[in-house]
Each structure stands twice: as structure tokens, then as C-alpha cells.
Write a protein that binds this DNA or RNA. Structure first.
Lengths: 353, 353
DNA sequence: CAAGTGTAGGACAACGTTGTCTCGAATTTA
DNA sequence: TAAATTCGAGACAACGTTGTCCTACACTTG
């Protein structure tokens, strides 16, 4: 003998089912579920009992559809959570979302800009209340209609291209200029510059910051020491070896992000040489690295927190004009190796942790 | 003069709006949007033009509600994305979800088990196709009805309590036993054991692994060297100092997770002493730490990948009985400091990166 | 040329819920 | 005691979409 329907084939109970079991009308179930006070105590208890017995849970989508209320969902478009930088943003966003009783859909943008747009459109079809986008590149003008139709967007770390929208970015220019100025003041004039692709505005700004520092110091930046399209630690290591093998090697390095910073660090540590190193982006445990170096740091979580709070203000129609928030950077000296200065003691290294 | 409705107040266009603009029936719009082939070329073009003009995007929730199709969404309940361990799981899950054209709602479990259940119920109301849960503790028997009603769940890193469900976990016992055995074989008999709360089965299993190693070696584990409820690096550092100040200090440490491992590492490095250290969990850049130590490592991303793949198999009804997948661990020797052996060279350290 | 065949597109109902309205009963008041 | 007032609960329609059915028209065929 077998049951009429296997458990896995069981349909989820609806309010109609609960109403039947409780012996009340559909609408009364709705009232009880929504906590309307004007329901008879006894009927309410029958409804609760029936709900529990059947395992009823109101269909959120149907409810939102009928009542026209929001989906209490925001979308976060981000590249890769296994990258500490993005993970910190996502974590901070999640905290703000939870505080606003909102669920967070995290969509990973694919490799190309087309994938990214498609992912955004999918989130729009799901009627998210708003979008947080860490753009990977490409043009965003196709999103104008979505903004006009009421889906607010905040761009994180990079401004949108071809679109007037909110963004929260770092002061890449000033951070890089400060870093390069520090190296120059420490006596360096030949500095290897390693940055990722200049398709990214962040990298362009950082490189421009370095150039400005050189100009301000009245120095010429040797373009043969500027390496672009450095994608990761391994490529960075290779470039370090190449540059140091040249006839006029650099005495210091500036890295456009922490991935190349780590590559340079590893390379210099293995060589045992003491070229100075300044890198954009701090990272976990950087103060425990086997060799001192200086980072351009900033409040990584704040990128997420401020973006999410801005998004919710826009969802609640508290802001109107497109805003750009620029977060400051800070030069964090973990004992940069100057041409003149002595190697600092281990105990001094972690002074800005 | 002002427009009749401000752009921000604009209602999103529906199929009815598109039908009106295109001069066709509602159903024809539906057919075009869903790519039904039997629509006249010219009408289809009118519909496409009207859609583009209005910025129409089909309401995914309404579509799913009517057609009874799935929401193409899974939920991931996780503690904190800024923790590398969880971020790697989330990242791996996201890749699998994307391959299945499924969106991922990442819900952060709060501090207590009650919050966690509430977050799960919210995801059930949203009719996710399945749930991935990294449980923080507490009893999960309340979830049985949800499983019966067709929401599959896979538990990650820890098995559910009071519930028969799929899980993907690490071989904590074997990993800890191997680690302790290594220390014992290197001549250590007084080993400081630092683990987090024993409320977590992972920690109980790891401690049990250590005890087993001692028993197998015919040694007695001095319980005064076993410290539980070590919550983070700072607490770990304090405990190291306390244990080393005792009259019979340990000559080695075993840490139940990487957070305490880092605390111990920092403490030992600052002291400049050479007690041996083995820690559960590898972490980024661990091979660059200023002092060698050994980790119990495992494929962190595989926890996410295998869980997600198992979940989708269950969603597709390809599995029936509750399954537990146990992932192996591996002792990764970065130059453990034995009582007998010499300090290894830096170049040897990174041999299992 | 009449009947049969095929096909495109529209009318209608329904998914699970909630807003609006109405009705009946209980309670109050003159 | 009858009318007025309250208040709880059910009937009905609607949110935006799709499944089902049906009609109208074009085209074939004996």
C-alpha cells in the first residue's frame, strides 16, 4: 500500500488550504497572517493551528504582487567574492541590508560588459528595490530607462560610463600622488610603476596621481619604468625581475593594487634586496609580511556601507540629484625602505594596524 | 508647466501597456516575450518596438506565480562574508548558481539560532528552489516541514542538528589527529590546545582528534593545556602568554582554527621563541608569514562547489536519500619547528602552496 | 464551389494574495 | 423595544502574467 502522493510531490499549502482546515474564509486567514487586530481570538487561534499543521508560509511574491509593495530585495552586482576587496564590500552591504529588513541578491558579473548588463536586467525583471553595482567596465547608458522607471542604482568603486547616477569611489588620484610623493621625498627618482589595465578609471587615476607627484617634484617619470596590464601577483613578479635586470633599475616600486603589491613583495623578499615598495590597497595580515612595505589604505567596508545607505535613501526618495561620494585614502607607513633611512625594527612595523 | 507625472512616480509598464501601444492583444505580447514562434513577423516587430519604447521588462514574480515555474533562486545562509572561509564558500556557490542560471540570495545569519531560523523562513516565503546553510548552531528540527514541502537543503561545514538532511563537511577528526600525531612524532608531549567553543561540532571533532592522537601514542593529554572558547586572535595571544608563563609550559601549540592560529603566530613571533605551531585552516598569504608553521588545509572552495552541486541535483530530483559528503584534509608542512629538527630555510617554507 | 484543414490571435480564467465593499450580528442608545 | 452604531468576517475583484479554449480567416482539396 502506498500513500496517495509522495511527500516530495506535495504542493505547498496556500491560504485557501489553511482556510478550509480552519473553517474560516480565505480573507480571515489573510488578516490573521498579516496581524490585523480585528479578528476574533478563537478564529485566529484556529488559523494559527491550521497554519502550523500544514506548514503554511505566505507566498511573498504573490503578496507583493497584489499589494504593490516592494520586494524588499536589493541586488549587488560584483565580480568575485573570493577577492578580499569585494568580499568586504559585500559583507558591509549585507549588514546594511539586514538593518533595512531587505534581502540581498548577489550576482556575479561575468567577464564581459554584456554579461553584466544581462545580469542587471535580470535583477530588474525581479523588481529589486535598488541596485548596487561594482562595474567591470563598458557603457552603462542602457540603464537610464531603468533608473527613470524607478530602480535606483549606486555604483561602487568606479563611476558609471554614459550615465548620471550615484557613485561611491576612492580618492585614487590623491592616494597615488601621496604615495609617489613619499617615495620621491625619500630620495627615489627611479620608481617602477605597476598598474593593471588602463581601461579601468581607477588605474588611470592612480597613474595620473603618480605623474602629478613627479611633475610637482620637478622630476621626469621614465616611461620605460611604467608597466600597465599587470593582472596579478605572478605577472608583477615577472615585471620586477625584468625591471631590476635592466641597466638603470628602479630603486622603488609603486603598485596600483594589492595583487601586484603582493607579487612585488614576494619577488623582493626572495631576492633579499631592499627596494622600497608602496602599494595601493591594504590586505589582511599585511602587517605580518616578512618585509616592510607601505600601503595606501582606505576604509574598504565603508565603500559598501556608504553605498548601501545611499541606495536606501534613494529608495526612500530622500535624495534627488546624482551624488558622488569620494572616500579618502591614507598612506600607511609600515617602514618604507628609503634610500637614506635605516631598516626599521620589527616592532615598529605594525604601527598603523 | 509641469508634466503630469514625475519620472520617479512613473509606474513600470506592463504587458497591457505594451499591447495597447503595439495595437495587439495582451496574449500576443506574452507570446512574443516568451519567444513563441507562431506570431506574425510584423506583429512581433510592433511588440518589440513598443517594449523598447516603454522599457518593458516582464515581471518575473508574476510569471512564476502564474506558470508555477520555479523562482530560479537559491538561498545561502552564511555568517560573515568578510571571513575568508565563508567568502570562498559563497564565491564557489555563486559560480555553480550562475551555471544553473539561478540567482543567489545571500542571507547573513545573525548571532543566535533564532535569527537563523527566521532568516530561513523568510527565504522559504520567497519560495527559493533550495537552501544552502552554514549553520551557526541550534536545533534544526523546525525545518523538517520545509524539506517535506519541497525545499531541499544542504548543510555546509556542520551537520544539521535534529534533522536528516544533506551535508558537506570536513574530516575534522582525521585532520586534527594527523596534526597532533605530527607534533607528537616531532617529540612534543606538552602541547597547548586552543579551540573555539565546543558548542560547535567541528571543534568537538577536532579536539577529539587530538585526544585520539595522544591515546594512540600512549601519552596523556594534560587538560590544563586545553583551552576552549578561544574566540579570536587576541584571545589566542593572551592564552599563549598565559600558558608559556606557567611552570610547565607547552613546547608546541595546536589551534582549532586559523583565527587563533594567527593570534598564536603573532604572539610567538613577537616573543621570538620557537615553539611549534599547527593550525587548522589555511589562509591567504600564510606562506609569507614571518615564522614557519604548519596548517591542516583542505579545499575551501570545494565545500561550496560540492554543496551547491548536490543541492541542484536534489532540486532536479536526482538524489533521494540524505547524503553526507566528507572532504579530506591534508597536513601542509611549512616547516614545523620540531624539538629535534633545525629551523628550515625560508626557501623551503612554501613547499605546499 | 463547398467542405475540410490549419493557423494566428484574442477572450477568459487562474496562480496566491490583498484592497474594497457589503452584510449580518452584537451592542448601544433613545 | 426599536433604531442606530459598531465591528467582525465573507464575497469579489484585482495585481501581472500564462494556460486553455475558441473563433475567424486563409488556404487547400475533391
Amino acid at each position: 500500500m502506498h500513500t496517495k502522493s509522495s511527500p516530495s510531490a506535495a504542493r505547498r499549502p496556500t491560504m485557501t488550504d489553511v482556510a478550509r482546515v480552519a473553517g474560516v474564509s480565505l480573507k480571515t486567514v489573510s488578516r490573521v497572517v498579516n496581524g490585523v487586530a480585528t479578528v476574533d481570538q478563537e478564529l485566529a487561534e484556529r488559523v494559527h493551528a491550521a497554519s502550523a499543521e500544514l506548514g503554511f508560509r505566505a507566498n511573498f511574491a504573490a503578496s507583493a504582487l497584489r499589494s504593490g509593495s516592494s520586494t524588499a530585495t536589493i541586488g549587488l552586482l560584483i565580480k568575485d567574492l573570493s577577492n578580499e576587496f569585494y568580499a568586504n564590500i559585500a559583507s558591509a552591504v549585507a549588514v546594511v541590508a539586514k538593518a533595512h529588513h531587505t534581502q540581498l541578491i548577489t550576482a556575479h558579473s561575468g567577464e564581459n560588459a554584456e554579461d553584466e548588463l544581462e545580469a542587471i536586467f535580470d535583477l530588474c525583471r525581479r523588481r529589486v528595490d535598488g541596485l548596487l553595482i561594482v562595474p567591470t567596465g563598458g557603457d552603462h547608458s542602457a540603464l537610464k530607462s531603468e533608473i527613470d522607471l524607478g530602480i535606483p542604482m549606486v555604483f561602487i568603486d568606479r563611476k558609471p560610463v554614459g550615465l548620471a547616477a550615484d557613485s561611491v569611489v576612492l580618492d585614487n588620484f590623491a592616494g597615488a600622488r601621496d604615495a609617489a610623493t613619499r617615495l620621491i621625498n625619500d630620495g627615489h627618482s627611479r620608481i617602477g610603476i605597476l598598474v593593471d589595465t588602463l581601461n579601468m578609471a581607477t588605474m588611470r587615476d592612480r597613474l595620473q596621481g603618480v605623474r602629478t607627484a613627479f611633475a610637482e617634484a620637478g622630476l621626469a617619470l621614465d616611461d620605460s619604468l611604467v608597466v600597465t596590464n599587470v593582472r596579478g601577483p605572478i605577472e608583477a613578479s615577472i615585471e620586477v625581475d625584468r625591471l631590476l635586470a635592466s641597466s638603470a633599475p628602479p630603486t622603488a616600486f609603486f603598485c596600483g593594487n594589492n595583487r601586484s603589491g603582493i607579487g612585488v613583495l614576494r619577488s623582493l623578499w626572495q631576492r633579499g634586496t631592499n627596494e622600497a615598495l608602496v602599494s595601493f590597497d591594504d590586505f589582511q595580515l599585511s602587517e605580518l609580511m616578512p618585509r616592510p612595505f607601505t600601503v595606501v589604505r582606505y576604509d574598504n567596508r565603508a565603500l559598501g556601507t556608504i553605498s548601501a545607505e545611499l541606495l536606501f535613501r534613494r529608495i526612500n526618495r530622500e535624495v534627488f540629484d546624482p551624488t558622488t561620494v569620494v572616500l579618502p585614502t591614507e598612506l600607511c607607513d609600515r617602514g618604507i625602505t628609503g634610500l637614506r633611512g635605516p631598516q626599521p625594527q620589527a616592532s615598529q612595523r605594525a604601527r598603523c594596524t
